[in-house]
Simulated assay, not measured.
Amino acid sequence: MQTETKPKVMNRLNRIEGQVRGIARMVEEDRYCIDILTQLQAVRAALSRVESEVLKDHMDHCVIGAIAGDDLADRKAKATELIELLGRASR
């Protein structure tokens, strides 16, 4: 992961961790289901943004590096990884 990406991702993950703890408290306190569901949607959206950031970093750093490099096996490996990742995401 690139140096400038890591702190941003860690900051977002720490916030998400706090959100999840807050949701657990809401469940313990028997809060209204719609309020809990709203917070769950917010966490899912935040995780999606983190996922996008990590994927962008991977493309910019790892995949572009492999494409620009001379190692054919590395290029194929990076392409295979992305295809498998996208396949898992579509399930």
Results as ranks from 00 to 15, higher is better:
Met1Lys: 01
Gln2Lys: 15
Glu4Asn: 14
Glu4Met: 15
Glu4Leu: 11
Glu4Cys: 09
Thr5His: 11
Thr5Arg: 02
Thr5Asn: 08
Thr5Met: 14
Lys6Leu: 01
Lys6Val: 12
Lys6Glu: 11
Val9Pro: 04
Val9Phe: 00
Asn11Tyr: 05
Asn11Ile: 11
Asn11Gln: 15
Asn11Pro: 05
Arg12Val: 04
Arg12Ala: 11
Leu13His: 07
Leu13Trp: 02
Leu13Gln: 09
Asn14Val: 04
Asn14His: 14
Arg15Lys: 15
Arg15Pro: 11
Ile16Asp: 08
Glu17Ala: 13
Glu17Leu: 15
Gly18Trp: 08
Gly18Glu: 02
Gln19Asn: 06
Gln19His: 12
Arg21Leu: 14
Gly22Tyr: 00
Gly22Lys: 13
Gly22Leu: 06
Ile23Leu: 11
Ile23Met: 09
Ile23Arg: 04
Ala24Val: 12
Ala24His: 08
Arg25Trp: 05
Arg25Glu: 13
Met26Val: 03
Met26Leu: 10
Val27Gln: 04
Val27Asn: 06
Val27Gly: 00
Glu29Gly: 06
Glu29Gln: 10
Asp30Val: 12
Asp30Ala: 04
Arg31Asn: 12
Ile34Thr: 02
Ile36Ser: 01
Ile36Met: 01
Leu37Trp: 13
Leu37Thr: 12
Leu37Pro: 00
Thr38Val: 02
Leu40Lys: 07
Leu40Tyr: 09
Leu40Val: 12
Leu40Arg: 07
Leu40Glu: 11
Leu40Ile: 07
Ala42Val: 00
Ala42Phe: 11
Ala42Pro: 05
Val43Gly: 05
Val43Ile: 14
Arg44Gln: 13
Ala45Gln: 02
Ala46Lys: 12
Ala46Asp: 04
Ala46Cys: 05
Ala46Glu: 00
Ala46Pro: 01
Leu47Met: 10
Ser48Lys: 07
Arg49Thr: 06
Arg49Leu: 05
Arg49His: 11
Val50Leu: 00
Val50Met: 00
Glu51Lys: 07
Glu51Gly: 08
Glu51Ala: 10
Glu51Leu: 13
Glu51Arg: 06
Glu51His: 09
Glu53Met: 09
Glu53His: 00
Val54His: 03
Val54Arg: 09
Leu55Tyr: 09
Leu55Ala: 04
Lys56Gly: 08
Asp57Ile: 08
Asp57Arg: 02
Asp57Cys: 14
His58Val: 01
Asp60Glu: 05
Asp60Met: 10
Asp60Thr: 00
Cys62Trp: 07
Cys62Glu: 11
Val63Gln: 05
Gly65Glu: 14
Ala68Cys: 03
Ala68Thr: 08
Gly69Phe: 01
Asp70Met: 04
Asp70Ala: 07
Asp71His: 07
Leu72Ile: 05
Leu72Cys: 08
Ala73Gln: 07
Ala73Lys: 14
Asp74Ser: 08
Arg75Glu: 13
Arg75His: 00
Arg75Tyr: 09
Lys76Pro: 02
Ala77Asp: 08
Ala77Val: 13
Ala77Trp: 02
Ala77Cys: 08
Ala79Asn: 02
Thr80Tyr: 01
Thr80Leu: 14
Thr80Asn: 12
Thr80Arg: 10
Glu81Asp: 05
Ile83Cys: 07
Glu84His: 10
Glu84Lys: 01
Glu84Ala: 10
Leu85Ala: 03
Leu86Phe: 15
Leu86Pro: 11
Leu86Asn: 00
Gly87His: 00
Gly87Pro: 06
Arg88Lys: 09
Arg88Gly: 03
Ala89His: 15
Ala89Thr: 04
Ala89Met: 15
Ala89Ile: 12
Ser90Asn: 15
Ser90Asp: 14
